[in-house]
Amino acid sequence: MDRQISVSGEAAMLALGARIASAVRAGDVIALQGGLGAGKTTLTRGLLHALGLEGEAPSPSFALVQPYDAPPLRLPVAHVDLYRLDDAEDIAELGLDDYLEDGLVVIEWPERMGDRLWPHALRLTIEDEDAGRRLTADLTDDWRDRWSRL
């Protein structure tokens, strides 16, 4: 099941991230697809701030994984950017499964994982449209009810 939302501007993308944060729980994976500058990191920043992050949330483009601990966050988060990943075989070395025990994994450029993306992941695709961005949510059974309450 897919659901589309129009998002106009940075403030709206941050607010959407905050709404998604209200529904996340330990073991969740959020996979963010979209081109450069689509708003993937902005959405993640809104989510992180709503979970309790104060201060900056840098893009993990060079580190690949930017971990955030609880506390101060409501639950641990691994913000992952796979843009620079050359080989899907390198995914195992990132230790992302460990975060799913008690935290959340947010992945930018999940298509670089090939078939290694968890089947329960909430897949969000962000595309340009005339007045901003269009976000399409590919909802798993686990997310269907939670998404309807956002």
Score class of each variant (00 low, 15 high):
Glu54Phe: 04
Leu100Lys: 11
Glu108Val: 15
Gly55Thr: 05
Ala137Lys: 01
Asp102Trp: 02
Glu93Phe: 15
Ala21Asn: 02
Ala12Ile: 06
Ile30Asn: 02
Pro67Leu: 04
Gly52Asp: 03
Gly34Glu: 08
Ala11Gly: 13
Leu16Met: 11
Leu53Cys: 14
Phe62Asn: 12
Arg134Glu: 10
Phe62Cys: 09
Gly103Val: 10
Leu16Pro: 03
Leu96Lys: 07
Thr42Asp: 08
Arg133Phe: 09
Asp128Lys: 12
Glu10Gly: 07
Ile91Asn: 00
Arg123Met: 05
Ala70Ile: 00
Ala11Pro: 14
Tyr68Gly: 01
Val29Ser: 09
Leu124Tyr: 01
Gly17Asn: 03
Gly17Tyr: 04
Leu122Lys: 12
Gly39Lys: 11
Ala137Met: 07
His79Asn: 08
Gln33Thr: 10
Leu124Gly: 02
Arg25Gly: 13
Ile107Met: 15
Ala15Trp: 00
Ala50Trp: 04
Glu89Ser: 11
Leu32Ala: 07
Pro119Asp: 14
Gly39Gln: 11
Pro110Cys: 13
Ala50Leu: 03
Asp142Leu: 13
Glu89Trp: 00
Ala131Phe: 05
Leu100Gln: 10
Asp97Pro: 00
Trp143Thr: 02
Gln33Lys: 10
Val106Pro: 13
Ser22Gln: 15
Leu75Phe: 05
Tyr83Phe: 12
Ser61Cys: 14
Asp128Thr: 07
Asp69Lys: 05
Ala31Glu: 10
Glu56Val: 04
Asp69His: 12
Leu36Thr: 08
Asp145Arg: 10
Glu101Leu: 13
Arg133Ile: 12
Glu111Arg: 15
Asp138Tyr: 05
Gly37Glu: 10
Leu36Arg: 06
Phe62Val: 12
Pro110Val: 13
Gly27Tyr: 10
Val80Thr: 06
Arg19Lys: 11
Trp109Ala: 08
Asp145Leu: 10
Ala121Glu: 06
Ala131Glu: 14
Gly114Val: 10
Ala11Ile: 11
Ile30Val: 13
Trp109Tyr: 13
Ala78Gly: 08
Val77Thr: 12
Ala50Tyr: 01
Pro110Trp: 08
Leu104Ser: 09
Ser6Arg: 11
Gly132Glu: 05
Ile126Asp: 01
Ala137Thr: 03
Ala11Gln: 15
Gln4Met: 05
